[in-house]
């Protein structure tokens, strides 16, 4: 179907974009890569009066890696993450997860800001943002603010963004070289949305026991979240067959997966158990020296 008619603007500054989006009765939406919004418009699930294109706003397409961690500008595309060799060490979990996002042509246009704002519970980046305690930067009519990823996603396609607010970037805290991590996903086809995916990492204490465990779920949820019960089950344990299987079991009982035409809830729950197990084995098997 064709979208309903709308006007189009491509402002050259962030301030101008915010003012267009927050004008009274504007009924306006930002457009970044359009890879989620165009289908939404084609199905007429949204009928904005104005689209505000973010493509000309300077500075939003940069990836920065420094002592503060990794900062992804909102207009950074999947392709840019794939091509950035610095991220192999600066954030290997992010890099591995993004390999699963969408198909070749979509990766040339789709952006991280659009993915966060679209808030599909089966999308990889929102899951990584939550798993890694990311901070979302936004600019709006009342200035700039930061929102913790854990509080940003409210449910399927629903976020804490207010009218007129634009995501400007995502901040992920520094990664330590010795950190163990794993990412596992089941989808019908490479590049499709996850039926279920698990991203996780842990550090090890002097005695080699897991500490600071973060386990995040994608797809088997109404919004991406950490699985605190499974994290607690692993923290303080030596990572071996017994503790891996125990944590995976705890994870499967802790999640509340939805049921839809792609998979019944029971299947997604079983996937959580399997994928936590696989991702922990992946993490345990990894050399402590960087991304190998």
């Amino acid at each position: 179907m064709k979208p309903t008619p709308f006007d189009y603007a491509s402002p050259a500054t962030l301030a101008e974009a915010v003012s267009l989006l927050s004008a009274r009765d504007a009924n306006a939406m930002p457009i970044a890569g359009g890879q989620s919004l165009m289908p939404v418009l084609a199905f007429r699930l949204a009928a904005p009066k104005l689209l505000v294109d973010l493509r000309r706003i300077p500075g939003l397409n940069r990836i920065e890696t420094n002592s503060e961690g990794v900062h992804l500008g909102a207009m950074v595309r999947w392709r840019d993450i794939e091509d950035d060799a610095r991220l192999d060490n600066a954030h290997p979990l992010l890099k591995a997860a993004i390999e699963h996002v969408a198909h070749y042509q979509i990766r040339n246009r789709g952006t991280i800001g659009g993915s966060l704002a679209h808030a599909d519970p089966a999308a990889e980046l929102p899951g990584i943002a939550v798993t890694c305690d990311g901070i979302i930067n936004a600019a709006g009519p009342n200035g700039a603010r930061t929102i913790r990823a854990a509080e940003f996603f409210l449910g399927p396609l629903s976020t804490a963004l207010k009218t007129g607010e634009i995501i400007t970037g995502l901040q992920l805290s520094p990664w330590s070289v010795a950190r163990r991590w794993g990412f596992e996903e089941i989808s019908r086809r490479r590049g499709d949305f996850a039926i279920t995916a698990i991203g996780l990492f842990y550090d090890t204490d002097a005695a080699g026991r897991a500490a600071n465990t973060h386990i995040g779920v994608i797809g088997a949820c109404r919004r991406p979240h950490r699985i605190a019960e499974a994290e607690a089950a692993l923290n303080g344990c030596a990572v071996n067959d017994a503790s891996i299987l125990a944590a995976a079991k705890v994870a499967a009982t802790a999640v509340d997966p939805p049921e839809d035409l792609h998979a019944p809830a029971r299947y997604r729950r079983a996937l959580v158990e399997t994928l936590v197990e696989r991702a922990l084995r992946q993490a345990a098997a990894r050399s402590t020296r960087g991304n190998t």
Binding site: Y8, I31, G34, I106, N108
Partner: peptide, 21 residues
Amino acid sequence: GACTVIVNGEAVRSCLMLAVQ
């Protein structure tokens, strides 16, 4: 993917891009 064209050297889906973009 039937609508794929190459924009500034990169393959994109032309049904997911506005002409004005």
